[in-house]
Each structure stands twice: as structure tokens, then as C-alpha cells.
Computed example of a mutant assay.
Amino acid sequence: TLWEEVWRAGPDGVTLVEARIQGSGAGMEAPPEARLVDGFWRWRPQLPAQREIAMRRSGATADWQICIAGRCRPMGDYLPPEADPVILSACP
């Protein structure tokens, strides 16, 4: 089941703009305010800007996809497989 998130960097940190999921699974249920659009349940989580985001890479699941300006590539194209955790933050 695909779970996608859109994050934007800004002066206050990194803000979660939208979350979307194709279906439900253990711990992956869309909240009541989610709306089904183009096959994804979409919603805007109410989360303040974060100074940094920690992304774990266990190897037990597919690697993260990082999309920049509409081009998506696996995190392994940027970092070696043993890079864990990966910390994302806005550039000063």
C-alpha cells in the first residue's frame, strides 16, 4: 500500500502539506477527514513545522522515494544502503 507525503521547506522548518494513502492496512488507516481523490485517500495533517524529519531504512521494505521538482528517485540513488537514519531538514 502506497503512503505518500508532501513536505515543503520554509523559514520555520519542514511542513507536512499533504498525506495520501491508496488503501488501509495495519496502522495505515486514513483519518475521518480524508477524501478519496484519484485512487488515494488525501488529507492535510495538523502538524506544526518540524526542524528535522528522521527517516528510517530497515531494508525490510522498499526504500524511500525522494521527489524533487516532479522527478522521483530511490533514496539509494543519493545515499548508501547502510545510511540509517536519514535526517532531512531545511537548508539555512
Rank of each mutant, 00 (worst) to 15 (best):
L88T: 01
W43N: 07
C72G: 14
T15D: 05
E33L: 14
I87A: 02
R44W: 14
R44I: 12
A62M: 10
R44A: 14
A54H: 11
E18C: 07
D63K: 04
T1H: 03
E52D: 11
C72A: 14
S89E: 04
R56W: 15
D12L: 15
G76K: 14
C72K: 01
A90M: 09
L16V: 03
V14T: 12
P45F: 12
C72D: 10
W3C: 01
S24E: 15
L16I: 10
A62H: 06
I87Q: 04
D84C: 03
G23F: 11
P80D: 04
W7S: 01
S89Q: 07
L79I: 00
P85M: 12
P74H: 03
A49V: 13
P11L: 08
D77P: 01
W43I: 02
S58M: 01
Q65C: 03
A49P: 13
M75F: 08
P85H: 11
V17T: 09
E82K: 08
R20D: 08
G13F: 08
P32T: 10
P45S: 06
L36C: 09
E52I: 00
W3K: 01
L79K: 00
G27D: 13
C67A: 04
Q22V: 13
S58F: 07
E82M: 09
A60N: 14
P31Y: 05
E29W: 13
R8H: 07
A54I: 08
A9V: 09
I21T: 15
D12F: 11
A62W: 02
L2S: 08
A60H: 14
M75I: 13
D63M: 00
R51I: 03
L16S: 12
P80K: 07
G13N: 04
M55D: 01
Y78W: 10
A83F: 11
I68W: 14
V37W: 13
G39A: 03
T15N: 00
V86I: 14
A90K: 01
T1S: 05
Q22D: 11
E29H: 13
E52L: 09
T61I: 07
E4C: 00
L2M: 05
I66G: 00
P92I: 05
A34I: 07
M28G: 09
P80E: 08
I21Y: 11
Y78C: 09
W3T: 04
L88W: 02
G27Y: 15
P32Q: 12
L2F: 03
P32E: 11
Q65L: 15
R35V: 15
D84F: 05
A30H: 12
S89F: 02
L2N: 10
A34Y: 10
A60L: 12
M28V: 15
A69Y: 08
T1Y: 06
F40Y: 15
D38S: 15
V6Y: 01
I87R: 06
I53L: 09
R44S: 07
G39N: 02
P11I: 00
A54N: 02
D63V: 00
Y78V: 07
